[in-house]
């Protein structure tokens, strides 16, 4: 009979929750973002510079996750859309009520361009053995979120390291 942790580790390397963005990448969001942080990079404001350097307009690389945040409301939608579902699955399956993200890395590949229709999928990369930190006892895991454009080119990969845990006082319950 397999244990919960063995069942979870079977998912390592398996793409899950593939989805397509709710709208194509658009320039007005690029300008709103640049205005919010006063980013004057001519790649986003001067079409001649963008044409010369990047073969046409692109979106700021760090906007990668923006293209997948769901609308605040959509007709007929009944369930809240949770980003990084694999993270919440792990908390639930491993019975770890608390979690923190310890760090977040983004690697950028092909530029994202206005009009692109992006897809994403989540891949569990690792789940540690049980560890005790000052927060409590639990496990570290690494989840990659891969992003691709409509041509199938990878545009970026985000890696999240999470620590799911029980607080110190009830940490004993997790030693089984």
């Amino acid at each position: 009979m397999s244990t919960v942790i063995e069942d979870v580790r079977i998912l390592i390397g398996v793409p899950q929750y593939e989805e397509t963005g709710e709208f194509p990448v658009e320039r007005s969001y690029v300008w709103t973002m640049c205005a919010a942080v006063e980013n004057g990079n001519p790649l986003f404001w001067d079409d001649a510079v963008a044409k010369e350097l990047t073969g046409g307009p692109i979106a700021p690389p760090t906007m990668l996750s923006v293209w997948f945040r769901p609308h605040h409301w959509a007709p007929g939608r009944t369930e809240e859309h949770l980003p990084l579902k694999v993270h919440f699955d792990l908390k639930e399956r491993l019975g770890l009520p608390e979690a923190v993200m310890t760090d977040n890395t983004i690697v950028f590949y092909e530029p994202v361009r206005p009009g692109d229709v992006l897809t994403t999928r989540q891949i569990l990369r690792s789940v540690s053995d049980e560890k005790t930190t000052k927060l409590g006892t639990g496990r570290f895991w690494v989840i990659d979120v891969e992003y691709a454009n409509q041509k199938g080119e990878t545009v970026g990969v985000e890696s999240y390291t999470g620590f799911g845990y029980r607080r110190g006082s009830d940490a004993k319950a997790s030693t089984s």
Binding site: V37, E38, N39, N41, V49, P60, P61, M63, S65, N104
Partner: peptide
């Protein structure tokens, strides 16, 4: 967090140029 990411990007590319 994503807003902070955008501030970091702006800080870096203010320095590097396009």
């Amino acid at each position: 967090t994503p807003n902070q990411a955008a501030w970091f990007e702006r800080y870096i590319t203010d320095w590097t140029g396009p």
